[in-house]
Design a protein around this nucleic acid. Structure first.
Length: 304
DNA sequence: GACCAGGTATTGC
DNA sequence: GCAATACATGGT
């Protein structure tokens, strides 16, 4: 099959594996099994209205090789969108320097996950996906998201489908949601779709309002609490000052920064924001990636 | 069969 | 405020 291919200069560290599969987004898949021809692995997913594959390119200059089924109408704009989605404008060297200063835990986390970037995901998809994440696991979340896209979205090529809009979800009500096996979260997703479709929440506007106001709007959705709220603010709106705390981050904060003392979610969040300030988001995600990929004896207090 | 998974709503103090 | 509990579903 003929595909359209283009290269995008990266101009900084980029770890596609960590970035796309660390659990901040739920629709990326590694296409080739490891080690095929010694190439970098390629990842298939969706950015905006385009299904595409991403792959690091061998060579002197760091390049990202992108393929689509058809050329985009505006190549320049498409490239801009990809760079924006992958947050290639984030200065990881500066961020790392700031966060690792005098912090051996961050030093290890950044060494391990180096090149991980926090994406700028489409807000509705991010909100809906994280509503599905509560008391769930990444595999289940991904399966439900894939089902909903296939069932309600529009085909985008490469066998991928657009994420269903609030209206597309409302058109089928709870029926399809139940068939998606999302369990009790179906009615939460419905509430979110209703509020967005009715204009009670303007997801577009949340990108440029004060943080408190954005939080208030997101928290008004049934099924959205402090953790999901922070995840959406971080993974869709790139609000770096938030520090989403899930069970893993709570364990990690307790273990690394409280000598193993049992702490609350609130304490973990406050300590994270106190330590990491305006870069809390990156600290959180590198910490998450690090502890998820390491078998740590949580019961015994320790360093790293 | 109990327990867990990128939590939240509800209830009772 | 904070602790306890139910919640659908799939996997160990």
């Amino acid at each position: 099959m003929a595909v359209f291919k283009m290269d995008i200069p990266i101009g900084g560290p980029l770890n596609l594996d960590a970035t796309l599969l660390c659990g901040q987004a739920f629709r990326w898949r590694k296409k080739d099994p490891e080690g095929a021809c010694g190439d970098y692995p390629s990842f298939q997913g969706v950015i905006g209205d385009f299904a595409l594959t991403l792959q690091r390119e061998e060579g002197d200059e760091p390049l990202l090789s992108v393929t689509l089924e058809n050329p985009p109408p505006d190549t320049r704009e498409f490239e801009r969108n990809v760079r924006q989605y992958l947050a290639l404008d984030d200065d990881l060297d500066a961020i790392s320097k700031e966060l690792t200063r005098g912090d051996p835990v961050m030093q290890r986390a950044f060494q391990y996950g180096w090149g991980l970037r926090i994406l700028r995901q489409e807000p509705w998809e991010c909100l809906a996906s994280y509503i599905l994440s509560s008391n769930n696991n990444i595999k289940n979340i991904s399966r439900t998201v894939r089902y909903l896209c296939r069932r309600l979205g529009k085909p985008l090529g490469f066998g991928e489908y657009s994420f269903p809009t609030p209206d597309e979800i409302l058109s089928q009500g709870l029926k399809v949601l139940n068939e998606s096996k999302c369990g009790f979260r179906g009615r939460y997703l419905l509430d979110a779709a209703e509020k967005v479709a009715a204009g009670k929440i303007d997801l577009e506007a949340l990108g440029s309002v004060p943080l408190d106001e954005a939080k208030k709007a997101l928290l008004s959705i049934n099924g959205v609490g402090p953790k999901i709220c922070d995840c959406v603010l971080l993974f869709a709106y790139h609000r770096m000052e938030v520090f989403p705390v899930d069970v893993w981050i709570k364990r990690a904060m307790s273990y690394f920064y409280f000598g193993g003392k049992n702490i609350s979610f609130k304490e973990a969040r406050e300590e994270g924001q106190r330590r990491f300030g305006a870069l809390s988001g990156y600290a959180q995600e590198y910490l998450y990636y690090y502890v998820r990929e390491h078998a740590i004896q949580w019961s015994a207090p320790g360093s790293c």
